[in-house]
Amino acid sequence: DLSALRVEEVQNVINAMQKILECPICLELIKEPVSTKCDHIFCKFCMLKLLNQKKGPSQCPLCKNDITKRSLQESTRFSQLVEELLKIICAFQLDTGLEYANSYNFAKKENNSPEHLKDEVSIIQSMGYRNRAKRLLQSEPENPSLQETSLSVQLSNLGTVRTLRTKQRIQPQRTSVYIELGSDSSEDTVNKATYCSVGDQELLQITPQGTRDEISLDSAKKAACEFSETDVTNTEHHQPSNNDLNTTEKRAAERHPEKYQGSSVSNLHVEPCGTNTHASSLQHENSSLLLTKDRMNVEKAEF
Protein backbone atom coordinates (compact mmCIF):
# COMPACT_ATOMS: atom_id res chain seq x y z
CA ASP A 1 0.00 0.00 0.00
CA LEU A 2 0.99 3.57 -0.65
CA SER A 3 2.03 5.69 2.30
CA ALA A 4 0.24 8.88 3.23
CA LEU A 5 3.18 11.03 2.15
CA ARG A 6 3.28 9.59 -1.32
CA VAL A 7 -0.46 10.02 -1.69
CA GLU A 8 -0.16 13.68 -0.78
CA GLU A 9 2.67 14.17 -3.27
CA VAL A 10 0.68 12.61 -6.12
CA GLN A 11 -2.33 14.69 -5.15
CA ASN A 12 -0.31 17.91 -5.26
CA VAL A 13 1.04 17.07 -8.71
CA ILE A 14 -2.48 16.41 -9.97
CA ASN A 15 -3.67 19.73 -8.55
CA ALA A 16 -0.87 21.61 -10.31
CA MET A 17 -1.68 19.94 -13.62
CA GLN A 18 -5.34 20.69 -13.14
CA LYS A 19 -4.71 24.42 -12.59
CA ILE A 20 -2.78 24.60 -15.83
CA LEU A 21 -5.59 22.88 -17.75
CA GLU A 22 -8.39 24.96 -16.22
CA CYS A 23 -10.47 27.42 -18.20
CA PRO A 24 -9.95 31.03 -16.96
CA ILE A 25 -13.67 31.77 -17.39
CA CYS A 26 -15.44 28.78 -15.76
CA LEU A 27 -12.42 27.61 -13.62
CA GLU A 28 -12.94 23.96 -14.62
CA LEU A 29 -11.09 21.51 -16.83
CA ILE A 30 -11.35 22.74 -20.37
CA LYS A 31 -13.97 21.00 -22.48
CA GLU A 32 -13.47 21.24 -26.26
CA PRO A 33 -10.46 23.59 -25.97
CA VAL A 34 -10.23 26.54 -28.37
CA SER A 35 -7.18 28.82 -28.85
CA THR A 36 -7.15 32.51 -29.80
CA LYS A 37 -4.61 34.64 -31.70
CA CYS A 38 -2.96 35.53 -28.40
CA ASP A 39 -2.44 31.77 -27.65
CA HIS A 40 -4.81 31.66 -24.73
CA ILE A 41 -7.02 28.60 -24.40
CA PHE A 42 -10.63 28.58 -23.26
CA CYS A 43 -13.64 26.33 -23.42
CA LYS A 44 -15.49 26.56 -26.69
CA PHE A 45 -18.84 27.09 -24.98
CA CYS A 46 -17.44 29.87 -22.75
CA MET A 47 -15.93 31.77 -25.69
CA LEU A 48 -19.11 31.58 -27.81
CA LYS A 49 -21.12 32.84 -24.85
CA LEU A 50 -18.69 35.76 -24.45
CA LEU A 51 -18.79 36.66 -28.15
CA ASN A 52 -22.59 36.55 -28.31
CA GLN A 53 -22.91 39.15 -25.54
CA LYS A 54 -21.69 41.96 -27.83
CA LYS A 55 -21.96 42.70 -31.49
CA GLY A 56 -18.64 42.76 -33.26
CA PRO A 57 -15.28 41.76 -31.73
CA SER A 58 -14.89 41.23 -27.99
CA GLN A 59 -11.78 41.36 -25.74
CA CYS A 60 -9.75 38.47 -24.37
CA PRO A 61 -10.27 38.08 -20.59
CA LEU A 62 -6.49 37.73 -20.02
CA CYS A 63 -4.72 40.15 -22.42
CA LYS A 64 -7.65 42.36 -23.58
CA ASN A 65 -6.96 41.78 -27.27
CA ASP A 66 -9.73 41.66 -29.83
CA ILE A 67 -11.29 38.25 -30.46
CA THR A 68 -13.69 37.11 -33.21
CA LYS A 69 -15.36 33.82 -34.00
CA ARG A 70 -13.21 33.38 -37.10
CA SER A 71 -10.00 33.76 -35.09
CA LEU A 72 -10.84 30.77 -32.85
CA GLN A 73 -9.05 27.48 -33.58
CA GLU A 74 -9.37 24.03 -32.01
CA SER A 75 -6.28 22.73 -30.17
CA THR A 76 -6.09 18.93 -30.40
CA ARG A 77 -2.95 18.60 -28.28
CA PHE A 78 -4.51 20.40 -25.36
CA SER A 79 -7.55 18.12 -25.55
CA GLN A 80 -5.23 15.07 -25.39
CA LEU A 81 -3.58 16.46 -22.24
CA VAL A 82 -6.97 16.88 -20.62
CA GLU A 83 -7.92 13.28 -21.44
CA GLU A 84 -4.67 11.94 -19.95
CA LEU A 85 -5.19 13.97 -16.78
CA LEU A 86 -8.65 12.49 -16.39
CA LYS A 87 -7.20 8.99 -16.70
CA ILE A 88 -4.60 9.76 -14.00
CA ILE A 89 -7.27 11.02 -11.64
CA CYS A 90 -9.36 7.88 -12.19
CA ALA A 91 -6.35 5.65 -11.50
CA PHE A 92 -5.52 7.61 -8.34
CA GLN A 93 -9.05 7.14 -7.00
CA LEU A 94 -9.00 3.41 -7.75
CA ASP A 95 -5.59 2.81 -6.18
CA THR A 96 -6.08 4.81 -3.00
CA GLY A 97 -9.82 4.43 -2.58
CA LEU A 98 -10.02 8.15 -1.87
CA GLU A 99 -12.15 10.61 -3.71
CA TYR A 100 -10.26 13.44 -5.27
CA ALA A 101 -11.05 16.76 -3.61
CA ASN A 102 -11.42 18.76 -6.82
CA SER A 103 -12.82 15.83 -8.83
CA TYR A 104 -15.27 16.46 -11.58
CA ASN A 105 -17.90 14.23 -13.06
CA PHE A 106 -15.59 11.55 -14.45
CA ALA A 107 -18.27 8.86 -14.68
CA LYS A 108 -18.92 9.82 -18.28
CA LYS A 109 -15.25 9.26 -19.14
CA GLU A 110 -15.05 5.79 -17.60
CA ASN A 111 -15.27 2.85 -19.95
CA ASN A 112 -15.29 -0.84 -18.98
CA SER A 113 -14.51 -2.18 -22.44
CA PRO A 114 -11.50 -4.58 -22.82
CA GLU A 115 -9.74 -2.10 -25.09
CA HIS A 116 -9.88 0.51 -22.34
CA LEU A 117 -8.39 -1.97 -19.84
CA LYS A 118 -5.44 -2.59 -22.17
CA ASP A 119 -4.85 1.14 -22.49
CA GLU A 120 -4.63 1.52 -18.71
CA VAL A 121 -1.36 -0.45 -18.66
CA SER A 122 0.48 2.54 -20.12
CA ILE A 123 -0.69 4.96 -17.40
CA ILE A 124 1.14 4.15 -14.17
CA GLN A 125 3.02 1.02 -13.10
CA SER A 126 2.31 1.01 -9.36
CA MET A 127 1.60 -1.60 -6.72
CA GLY A 128 -2.01 -0.53 -6.45
CA TYR A 129 -2.46 -0.72 -10.19
CA ARG A 130 -0.88 -4.19 -10.27
CA ASN A 131 -3.13 -5.47 -7.55
CA ARG A 132 -6.12 -4.02 -9.32
CA ALA A 133 -5.04 -5.67 -12.60
CA LYS A 134 -4.74 -9.03 -10.82
CA ARG A 135 -8.22 -8.67 -9.45
CA LEU A 136 -9.52 -7.93 -12.91
CA LEU A 137 -7.75 -10.98 -14.34
CA GLN A 138 -9.22 -13.17 -11.61
CA SER A 139 -12.71 -11.87 -12.28
CA GLU A 140 -12.42 -12.37 -16.05
CA PRO A 141 -12.85 -16.21 -16.04
CA GLU A 142 -16.07 -15.80 -14.09
CA ASN A 143 -17.47 -13.43 -16.66
CA PRO A 144 -17.34 -15.90 -19.60
CA SER A 145 -19.28 -18.46 -17.57
CA LEU A 146 -21.91 -15.87 -16.86
CA GLN A 147 -21.97 -14.97 -20.51
CA GLU A 148 -22.35 -18.63 -21.47
CA THR A 149 -25.22 -19.08 -19.04
CA SER A 150 -26.92 -15.94 -20.33
CA LEU A 151 -26.45 -17.16 -23.89
CA SER A 152 -27.90 -20.56 -23.02
CA VAL A 153 -30.90 -18.88 -21.38
CA GLN A 154 -31.42 -16.70 -24.41
CA LEU A 155 -31.17 -19.67 -26.76
CA SER A 156 -33.64 -21.64 -24.66
CA ASN A 157 -36.02 -18.69 -24.72
CA LEU A 158 -35.65 -18.46 -28.47
CA GLY A 159 -36.35 -22.19 -28.77
CA THR A 160 -39.53 -21.88 -26.71
CA VAL A 161 -40.65 -18.90 -28.77
CA ARG A 162 -40.00 -20.79 -31.99
CA THR A 163 -41.90 -23.85 -30.77
CA LEU A 164 -44.84 -21.65 -29.79
CA ARG A 165 -44.81 -19.99 -33.19
CA THR A 166 -44.71 -23.34 -34.99
CA LYS A 167 -47.60 -24.57 -32.85
CA GLN A 168 -49.60 -21.46 -33.65
CA ARG A 169 -48.92 -22.02 -37.34
CA ILE A 170 -49.82 -25.72 -37.20
CA GLN A 171 -53.08 -25.20 -35.29
CA PRO A 172 -54.80 -23.07 -37.97
CA GLN A 173 -53.79 -25.63 -40.59
CA ARG A 174 -55.29 -28.48 -38.60
CA THR A 175 -58.51 -26.61 -37.96
CA SER A 176 -58.82 -25.70 -41.61
CA VAL A 177 -58.32 -29.35 -42.67
CA TYR A 178 -60.86 -30.50 -40.07
CA ILE A 179 -63.40 -27.98 -41.35
CA GLU A 180 -62.82 -29.02 -44.93
CA LEU A 181 -63.35 -32.71 -44.11
CA GLY A 182 -66.32 -32.32 -41.79
CA SER A 183 -68.10 -29.33 -43.28
CA ASP A 184 -69.73 -30.96 -46.32
CA SER A 185 -70.52 -34.66 -46.67
CA SER A 186 -70.87 -36.50 -49.97
CA GLU A 187 -74.69 -36.36 -49.71
CA ASP A 188 -74.64 -32.58 -49.22
CA THR A 189 -72.49 -32.09 -52.28
CA VAL A 190 -74.85 -34.27 -54.35
CA ASN A 191 -77.86 -32.33 -53.08
CA LYS A 192 -76.16 -29.04 -53.94
CA ALA A 193 -75.40 -30.32 -57.44
CA THR A 194 -79.02 -31.45 -57.97
CA TYR A 195 -80.31 -28.14 -56.61
CA CYS A 196 -78.15 -26.23 -59.06
CA SER A 197 -79.27 -28.46 -61.93
CA VAL A 198 -82.97 -27.96 -61.05
CA GLY A 199 -82.46 -24.20 -60.88
CA ASP A 200 -80.85 -24.23 -64.29
CA GLN A 201 -83.76 -26.22 -65.72
CA GLU A 202 -86.23 -23.74 -64.25
CA LEU A 203 -84.37 -20.88 -65.88
CA LEU A 204 -84.46 -22.73 -69.20
CA GLN A 205 -88.20 -23.31 -68.79
CA ILE A 206 -88.91 -19.69 -67.92
CA THR A 207 -87.28 -18.22 -70.99
CA PRO A 208 -89.34 -20.25 -73.57
CA GLN A 209 -92.57 -19.32 -71.77
CA GLY A 210 -91.75 -15.67 -72.23
CA THR A 211 -91.03 -16.19 -75.90
CA ARG A 212 -94.30 -18.13 -76.26
CA ASP A 213 -96.26 -15.29 -74.67
CA GLU A 214 -94.67 -12.87 -77.10
CA ILE A 215 -95.59 -15.14 -80.03
CA SER A 216 -99.21 -15.39 -78.81
CA LEU A 217 -99.42 -11.59 -78.54
CA ASP A 218 -98.07 -11.23 -82.07
CA SER A 219 -100.65 -13.72 -83.37
CA ALA A 220 -103.45 -11.84 -81.58
CA LYS A 221 -102.32 -8.59 -83.17
CA LYS A 222 -102.27 -10.24 -86.60
CA ALA A 223 -105.77 -11.63 -86.08
CA ALA A 224 -107.07 -8.20 -85.09
CA CYS A 225 -105.58 -6.68 -88.22
CA GLU A 226 -107.11 -9.40 -90.39
CA PHE A 227 -110.49 -8.89 -88.72
CA SER A 228 -110.38 -5.16 -89.43
CA GLU A 229 -109.49 -5.88 -93.05
CA THR A 230 -112.45 -8.26 -93.38
CA ASP A 231 -114.77 -5.61 -91.92
CA VAL A 232 -113.59 -3.14 -94.52
CA THR A 233 -114.15 -5.65 -97.33
CA ASN A 234 -117.61 -6.48 -95.97
CA THR A 235 -118.58 -2.82 -95.98
CA GLU A 236 -117.31 -2.57 -99.53
CA HIS A 237 -119.46 -5.58 -100.52
CA HIS A 238 -122.51 -4.11 -98.78
CA GLN A 239 -122.28 -0.79 -100.60
CA PRO A 240 -123.22 -2.19 -104.09
CA SER A 241 -126.09 -4.12 -102.53
CA ASN A 242 -127.35 -0.87 -101.01
CA ASN A 243 -127.11 0.77 -104.42
CA ASP A 244 -129.28 -2.02 -105.88
CA LEU A 245 -131.85 -1.43 -103.15
CA ASN A 246 -131.90 2.26 -103.92
CA THR A 247 -132.65 1.61 -107.61
CA THR A 248 -135.52 -0.69 -106.74
CA GLU A 249 -136.92 1.82 -104.26
CA LYS A 250 -136.82 4.56 -106.89
CA ARG A 251 -138.83 2.46 -109.29
CA ALA A 252 -141.39 1.62 -106.64
CA ALA A 253 -141.72 5.26 -105.63
CA GLU A 254 -142.48 6.27 -109.18
CA ARG A 255 -145.28 3.73 -109.32
CA HIS A 256 -146.74 4.16 -105.82
CA PRO A 257 -145.51 7.42 -104.22
CA GLU A 258 -147.90 7.43 -101.23
CA LYS A 259 -147.04 3.97 -100.04
CA TYR A 260 -143.31 4.52 -100.43
CA GLN A 261 -143.28 7.63 -98.21
CA GLY A 262 -144.36 5.59 -95.16
CA SER A 263 -142.00 2.79 -95.96
CA SER A 264 -139.06 5.16 -96.46
CA VAL A 265 -139.64 6.74 -93.07
CA SER A 266 -139.72 3.33 -91.42
CA ASN A 267 -136.50 2.36 -93.21
CA LEU A 268 -134.71 5.30 -91.62
CA HIS A 269 -134.94 3.65 -88.20
CA VAL A 270 -133.88 0.20 -89.41
CA GLU A 271 -130.17 -0.59 -89.50
CA PRO A 272 -128.78 -3.62 -91.23
CA CYS A 273 -127.12 -6.08 -88.88
CA GLY A 274 -123.46 -6.94 -89.21
CA THR A 275 -122.41 -3.46 -90.55
CA ASN A 276 -120.25 -0.79 -89.00
CA THR A 277 -121.05 2.82 -88.08
CA HIS A 278 -119.55 3.95 -91.37
CA ALA A 279 -122.03 1.82 -93.33
CA SER A 280 -124.99 3.19 -91.32
CA SER A 281 -123.92 6.79 -92.01
CA LEU A 282 -123.81 6.00 -95.74
CA GLN A 283 -127.34 4.55 -95.56
CA HIS A 284 -128.65 7.70 -93.86
CA GLU A 285 -127.19 9.85 -96.59
CA ASN A 286 -128.71 7.63 -99.32
CA SER A 287 -132.13 7.67 -97.66
CA SER A 288 -132.08 11.48 -97.39
CA LEU A 289 -131.23 11.75 -101.11
CA LEU A 290 -134.08 9.40 -101.99
CA LEU A 291 -136.55 11.47 -99.97
CA THR A 292 -135.60 14.63 -101.80
CA LYS A 293 -135.95 12.86 -105.15
CA ASP A 294 -139.38 11.47 -104.20
CA ARG A 295 -140.60 14.91 -103.21
CA MET A 296 -139.45 16.32 -106.53
CA ASN A 297 -141.28 13.58 -108.41
CA VAL A 298 -144.47 14.16 -106.41
CA GLU A 299 -144.42 17.89 -107.14
CA LYS A 300 -143.90 17.25 -110.87
CA ALA A 301 -146.88 14.89 -110.89
CA GLU A 302 -149.11 17.51 -109.24
CA PHE A 303 -148.19 20.12 -111.81
Rank of each mutant, 00 (worst) to 15 (best):
A4R: 05
A4D: 08
L5G: 09
L5W: 05
L5Y: 08
L5A: 03
R6M: 02
R6D: 06
V7G: 00
V7D: 01
V7W: 03
E8R: 13
E9T: 02
E9I: 01
V10C: 04
V10Y: 03
Q11S: 05
V13A: 07
A16C: 04
A16K: 10
M17R: 00
Q18I: 10
Q18F: 07
K19N: 03
K19E: 02
I20Q: 00
L21T: 06
L21W: 15
C23R: 00
P24T: 00
P24I: 00
I25R: 01
I25P: 00
C26P: 01
C26S: 00
L27M: 04
E28H: 01
E28T: 02
L29W: 08
L29Y: 03
L29Q: 02
I30C: 14
K31F: 03
E32W: 03
E32P: 00
P33C: 13
P33Y: 01
P33L: 05
P33G: 08
S35L: 15
S35R: 05
S35C: 05
T36S: 04
T36G: 08
T36F: 01
T36V: 01
D39G: 15
D39S: 08
H40A: 01
H40Y: 00
H40C: 01
K44V: 01
K44A: 03
K44G: 01
F45M: 15
M47L: 13
L48M: 05
K49V: 04
L51W: 01
L51D: 04
L51Q: 02
N52A: 10
N52K: 06
Q53S: 07
K54I: 04
K54V: 04
K55V: 08
K55D: 10
K55P: 06
G56L: 06
G56I: 04
G56S: 05
P57A: 15
C63L: 00
N65K: 10
D66H: 14
D66Y: 04
I67Y: 02
I67C: 01
K69Y: 03
K69E: 03
R70C: 09
R70M: 03
R70W: 07
S71C: 02
E74V: 12
E74L: 03
S75R: 05
F78G: 11
S79L: 03
Q80F: 05
Q80E: 12
V82G: 10
L86W: 09
K87N: 14
K87D: 11
K87P: 04
K87C: 09
K87S: 10
K87T: 11
C90L: 10
C90P: 02
Q93L: 00
L94W: 08
L94A: 05
L94S: 03
L94Q: 04
L94G: 01
L98E: 09
E99V: 08
E99K: 10
E99Y: 00
A101Q: 15
A101P: 07
S103I: 02
Y104L: 04
Y104R: 06
Y104E: 13
Y104I: 04
N105S: 05
N105L: 05
F106D: 04
F106I: 07
N111D: 15
N112S: 12
S113D: 14
L117S: 04
L117R: 07
E120T: 09
V121C: 11
V121L: 08
I124S: 10
I124T: 07
Q125N: 10
S126L: 11
S126M: 03
S126K: 04
Y129V: 09
R130Q: 01
N131P: 09
K134N: 15
K134Q: 15
K134M: 01
R135A: 04
L136F: 12
L137A: 14
L137I: 12
L137V: 11
Q138E: 09
Q138K: 08
S139N: 13
S139F: 10
E140Y: 09
P141T: 12
E142L: 11
E142T: 12
E142N: 09
E142A: 14
N143D: 05
P144Y: 12
S145T: 04
L146D: 00
E148Y: 09
L151K: 13
L151D: 12
S152P: 02
S152K: 10
S152C: 09
S152D: 03
S152V: 08
S152N: 12
V153L: 14
Q154L: 11
Q154S: 09
L155A: 15
L155R: 10
L155Y: 00
L155Q: 08
S156E: 15
S156C: 06
S156R: 03
N157K: 11
N157R: 05
L158M: 04
G159E: 10
T160N: 08
V161A: 08
V161E: 11
V161P: 11
R162C: 06
R162D: 15
R162Q: 02
T163H: 06
L164F: 14
T166A: 09
T166H: 08
Q168P: 09
Q168H: 10
R169A: 10
R174Y: 08
R174L: 00
S176F: 00
I179F: 15
S186I: 02
S186P: 14
S186N: 15
S186R: 08
E187V: 07
D188S: 05
D188N: 14
D188C: 06
V190N: 14
K192I: 10
G199T: 13
G199L: 02
D200R: 05
D200A: 05
Q201N: 15
Q201E: 06
E202L: 05
L204F: 12
L204Q: 15
Q205P: 10
Q205S: 13
Q205I: 01
I206Q: 04
I206E: 07
T207P: 14
P208M: 07
Q209E: 15
G210M: 15
T211K: 08
R212H: 05
R212M: 09
D213Y: 07
D213R: 05
D213S: 06
D213M: 07
E214G: 08
S216D: 10
S216H: 13
S216A: 05
L217W: 08
L217N: 07
L217D: 02
D218G: 10
D218M: 10
D218N: 12
S219E: 12
A220R: 12
K221C: 05
S228N: 13
S228F: 02
E229R: 10
E229K: 09
D231V: 03
D231L: 08
V232G: 13
V232N: 07
V232I: 12
T233D: 14
T233V: 13
E236V: 04
H238N: 14
H238Y: 08
S241H: 05
D244N: 11
D244E: 02
L245M: 12
L245A: 14
L245V: 11
N246Y: 12
T247S: 08
T248C: 11
E249L: 08
K250Y: 14
R251T: 11
A253S: 04
R255K: 11
P257R: 08
E258R: 09
E258A: 14
E258W: 07
K259N: 13
K259W: 14
Y260S: 12
Y260V: 12
Q261R: 06
Q261S: 13
G262M: 06
S264E: 08
V265K: 09
V265A: 13
V265S: 10
S266G: 14
S266M: 06
N267S: 15
N267C: 07
N267I: 03
L268M: 04
E271K: 12
P272R: 08
P272T: 15
G274H: 13
N276V: 04
H278A: 03
H278K: 05
A279Q: 15
S280N: 12
S281M: 07
L282K: 06
Q283G: 06
H284I: 09
H284G: 14
S288N: 10
S288R: 09
L289D: 14
L290G: 14
L290Y: 14
K293N: 05
K293S: 10
R295K: 15
R295S: 10
M296T: 11
M296V: 01
V298A: 06
E299P: 11
F303S: 14
